[in-house]
Design a protein around this nucleic acid. Sequence first.
DNA 1: AAAAAACTAGTGGTTTTCCGCTAGACGAAG
DNA 2: CTTCGTCTAGCGGAAAACCACTAGTTTTTT
Lengths: 215, 215
Amino acid sequence: MDKIKILVADDHQVIIDGLEAIISTTEHLEFIGGASNGKEVISKVKSQPVDLILMDINMPEMDGLECTAYLSKNYPNIRVIALSMHDNPRLAKRMIKNGAFGFLLKNSSKANILTAISEVMQGRNFFDPMLMSTFFDADNKKTSSSFSKKDLLTKREIQIIQLICQEKTTIEIADELSISTHTVESHRGNIMLKLELKNSVGLVKWAIQNEVIEL
Amino acid sequence: MDKIKILVADDHQVIIDGLEAIISTTEHLEFIGGASNGKEVISKVKSQPVDLILMDINMPEMDGLECTAYLSKNYPNIRVIALSMHDNPRLAKRMIKNGAFGFLLKNSSKANILTAISEVMQGRNFFDPMLMSTFFDADNKKTSSSFSKKDLLTKREIQIIQLICQEKTTIEIADELSISTHTVESHRGNIMLKLELKNSVGLVKWAIQNEVIEL
DNA sequence: AAAAAACTAGTGGTTTTCCGCTAGACGAAG
DNA sequence: CTTCGTCTAGCGGAAAACCACTAGTTTTTT
């Protein structure tokens, strides 16, 4: 099997050097150069064959998101692994959507990096375990935080919230529950009061964050 | 260092046997028994010290979710790794919320299982890479589906949506953008028309799904 | 330069939400 | 048995959102 030709894109030379060290000392991997921004990456893939790119997200000129989108459109055979300092799940999602196959944090272990390369070259995805932690944690902290205002609400009120979030009007809700519109208004008022919300827009956002409804 | 004492909970004996084989042949790990449901797990942890439990989610009598919640309350020192056939992110989230430290698919590789055990015993989370793939994919299919109505909207309209989603009223938005309230109304109307929405509740949900705003 | 799209602003009216306040009925808990 | 919480229902009024339509100005595209 041929060596895997790897390009590293990052605007910090230290990172490039570090990854070069890891790549060069590993069997089957070949470091073929660095690039300090997206434009350089594109010019390099035009002049030589590349199998895989370790791509920083934050770069001047052309960032990793844009560059990855371009590559996945014009060079679908080149695999991209996103590199990032920050364990931001949203950013990771966007990179994946743009065509990246994996996501690594810059402080990841050598073992992780090699695993990522191998997995991705076999057509599978790889996500930094650290990222996954924050992925789940993010959700947990919001919802299971010691106490939430959710406890203040009654079953009926939760039910009303769910119906409001289904884009139903007071009349429709009253009809569906076979109660008076006044009662629905009453509940709605109590809900707003308890949750200290301004309007139904805030209510929807609260409901999603507190998993009272699903998107 | 002492060996890590591991209990395996699953209602299929094959799974227990398989994991026992992996555990027993590995340095520093000790298989101390199996359980076919949550109640058995609890009775076993009462009679002997346990460091880590590989816990199936679907079990009769008392399932993995309930059992994990109980353990994390009464035996906080016991680490739990969830086991599942299905790569269901929602289920994974619930297990994590209930106190599990990791999530493994049953068809995971031996290497993965051992990594999971080691990571979790060091207090870190571990999530099966396969799970992560479906996690991201699930989102992608929803949002990046060929074409989204997002493309129909203008920059100004996106801006208006963002402000609406900040719980701002028409007057406040008009003020902030230094335009007439009528203009804001006009934009709002066009948005509703283009997105075929009934009211601002639907708008918020659309905005979140299409990443026009963040929660 | 012409056409198209986007942004702007208005009129006029309907519907819905939001707010405050009161109050009876009912079941559970003390 | 009384109190508390919840669910119910009502009134009146203010604010905001929603709808339909027209139309001038600016910007972008062709």
